[in-house]
């Protein structure tokens, strides 16, 4: 007998799921609320998924793309609140960028989607206990942290601050949620855009104020206690680079800064090798890494 470890069941076999809701977030960006069909024992074994993990989302003949969970608590979302089977619901926010995501973006309610997962290590939520949790996000990078924000009251953090940057006001995703989070007051929110012109929501009181400039300009004035702060960063790698550097300048250790990185993935199971960064596999060792884990490795922009 050949000695094996680990779990072979289902990791490479897609399961069918049904699109239960579609929400436009920004130009080219949609959130899909998805219900897993099939027997409950079949993966993806939700609600075992953790924030920061991802599914390989795809369709036969088109291919698959790794997409993080943006909804793990459907009861806390407007579109999920009225749904039946909330236990089996989860969501992904997709930008129509390439061939696969372009196809996925065309889904409508009732369509079938095929997926595998959940894969990867999520955000180290336990690190936030007793500390100030700083969330720095850019563009679509807010999506993998949305479940973290929604479970913020349960994390035991001394405080939560979200700094989010986007290109233009209309590119800011989760506007409804941002307004709700602001009104609930559980977290502090600052938004910034490169170009503040043409804000379609201008003058709406419930929207958080939108600054203009790079996210680093929101980080600089922050007063943080470096040893009592933990940061989760998600966005384009170049944005994460400069955001992390601002925190290092403030005295934070690389081990307290976590980033979620994107790499090409084909299997999700640590076999195909495409997502390697130095000795790591992004799919199984990541996609969330501490800054220290990635620092100094080749082909990393951090």
């Amino acid at each position: 007998m050949i000695e094996t470890e680990g779990n072979a069941k289902g990791a490479s076999v897609p399961v069918k799921a049904i699109i239960r809701g579609v929400k436009n977030e920004a130009p080219g960006v949609r959130t899909f609320l998805i219900e897993k069909s099939g027997p409950p024992a079949q993966p993806p074994c939700l609600p075992a998924a953790r924030p920061g993990q991802f599914n390989m989302l795809g369709y036969p003949g088109v291919g698959e793309a790794p997409i993080s969970f943006s909804v793990l608590h459907p009861e806390k979302t407007t579109e999920g609140r009225n749904q039946k089977n909330q236990k089996n619901l989860f969501g992904h926010t997709v930008r129509a960028a390439g061939r696969v995501t372009g196809f996925l973006s065309g889904f409508v309610e009732g369509d079938e989607v095929f997926l595998r997962g959940p894969f990867g290590r999520g955000w180290p939520l336990e690190e936030a206990r007793g500390k100030h949790l700083l969330l720095l996000t850019g563009g679509l990078g807010l999506a993998p942290l949305k479940p973290v924000i929604e479970m913020a009251p349960t994390l035991g953090a001394s405080g939560v601050t979200l700094l989010h940057g986007a290109r233009e006001p209309r590119d800011i995703i989760f506007k409804t949620e941002l307004a709700r989070w602001k009104s609930e007051g559980a977290i502090e929110i600052e938004l910034t855009v490169d170009n503040p012109e043409d804000n379609p929501d201008k003058g709406q009181k419930q929207q958080p104020k939108i600054h203009s400039g790079l996210i680093t300009e929101l980080i600089r004035p922050l007063r943080i206690d470096p040893s009592e702060t933990v940061a989760f960063i998600c966005g384009p790698e170049i944005m994460m680079r400069f955001a992390a550097r601002e925190l290092l300048i403030k005295g934070m250790a690389g081990s307290g800064i976590y980033v979620s990185v994107e790499r090409r993935m084909s299997c999700g199971t640590g076999h195909c090798g495409h997502c390697q960064i130095g000795p790591w596999f992004t799919c199984k060792d990541g996609p969330v890494f501490s800054y220290t884990q990635l620092k100094g490795l080749p082909d990393v922009i951090l």
Binding site: M1, I2, T4, E5, G6, N7, A8, A11, S12, K284
Partner: peptide, 20 residues
């Protein structure tokens, strides 16, 4: 190759079968 395909968190069923 055993370390890649037979050791966690996921094993490859095709490699495992051939190996056996």
């Amino acid at each position: 190759l055993d370390k890649v395909f037979l050791r966690g968190p996921y094993i490859d069923p095709f490699y495992t079968a051939r190996r056996e």
